[in-house]
Deep mutational scan, measured.
Amino acid sequence: ELREAFRLYDKEGNGYISTDVMREILAELDETLSSEDLDAMIDEIDADGSGTVDFEEFMGVMT
């Protein structure tokens, strides 16, 4: 189920989504998050600083 959700956002099928897209997902899930909260969450999610979120990083957030 998580893989299907990931595929919805990984429109190009390249195995990752951008941190911008991940930020939008988080904002949709919790509309009360401030910009600073979102920045901090993205920094934590994208631990390797690649600017992308792969499936493993995505799973870590969603579980």
Rank of each mutant, 00 (worst) to 15 (best):
V21G: 05
I17F: 03
Y16D: 01
D30R: 08
V53F: 05
E44H: 12
L26Y: 02
F58T: 01
G15T: 01
I17Y: 01
M41H: 03
M59N: 03
D37G: 05
Y9K: 04
D20K: 13
A5E: 08
E24W: 11
A27V: 08
G15K: 03
G49L: 07
I17P: 00
G60N: 14
M62N: 02
A27S: 11
S18N: 06
E31G: 14
L29V: 07
F6L: 03
S35H: 11
F58E: 01
L29F: 11
M62C: 09
F55H: 02
M22W: 04
E57V: 15
E56S: 10
L29P: 00
E44L: 14
M62F: 11
T19W: 05
G15M: 03
M22T: 02
M22S: 00
G60E: 11
D43K: 14
A27C: 08
E56Y: 12
R23G: 02
K11F: 09
L33K: 05
N14C: 08
D10C: 10
D39I: 06
V21S: 13
G13F: 05
A40E: 07
E57D: 12
R7I: 15
L26N: 00
G60A: 15
M22Y: 02
D20Q: 14
E28D: 11
E57K: 15
T19E: 02
T63N: 10
R7K: 15
V53K: 00
L8Q: 15
L29R: 13
D46N: 07
E36A: 12
D30L: 11
R3G: 09
I17E: 01
V21W: 03
D37M: 12
L38F: 03
R7F: 13
L33C: 05
E57M: 15
E1P: 10
Y16F: 12
I45D: 00
E57A: 15
G49T: 05
I45M: 13
L38S: 01
R7C: 15
L2Q: 04
E44S: 14
E56A: 10
I42K: 01
L2P: 04
D48P: 03
E12Q: 08
E24N: 11
T52A: 06
M22Q: 00
D46R: 04
